[in-house]
Amino acid sequence: MKLLRASDSSLLVQFGDVVAPEFHERVLALFRSLLTERDARIRNLHPAYASLLIDFDPLHMTHDELSERVRRLSDMKPRANDVTERLVTIQVCYDAEFGLDLADVAAYHSISIEEVVRLHTSVTYLVYFLGFSPGFAYLGGLAEKLQTPRLATPRTSVPAGSVGIAGNQTGVYPLDSPGGWRIIGRTPLTMFDKSATPPSRLQTGDRVQFTAVPRSSFDEMVQSAQQKEK
């Protein structure tokens, strides 16, 4: 574990420099401990693949003080039943209308579109962290046969709910935003709702399962979500 002064108001805790479950488990354990402690001097936590950035109020806390606390918390063995792992199911319609790059992804790997969908829905993914934009979760565990480079030119607008892949990652765009990931489908679920607690459907450390739904179910789910809003 390396402790680095990232700025006058933040400390970066580095557990490693590659994507590996053992590093992420330590990120998650420290992140959850600090979240539970609710120290008002800690303003923000940024978990990532193998590190945790801690933003704090330098008028009321020093790097040394925070480093000491981080060491103490990291020494503690996380108990297995401290946290119940959440499994979140996300329904996705993989119709060509939504899966803008589905055919390209299939062609890139010389497999059928059905095989792309089968591979994408046959794995349980891990939420490594949220970043890029509100509610955007970086999911790890994509099948090797689906790993596809980003678009050479990102789209200026990707509709909310779009499910994309980039390299060995997959994720869902929670809001309309620009994006360079290859879009293979769309979920009818609201991924980010500013009035909900918490506002994001996915949380760091969650497990995620995608399931394919037909267009008719997609429409029904969108309608019932809209009625709920009213």
Partner: peptide, 10 residues
Amino acid sequence: LLTDGIPLGA
């Protein structure tokens, strides 16, 4: 670089 958190003013 492996993606990590960005402090304000980086």
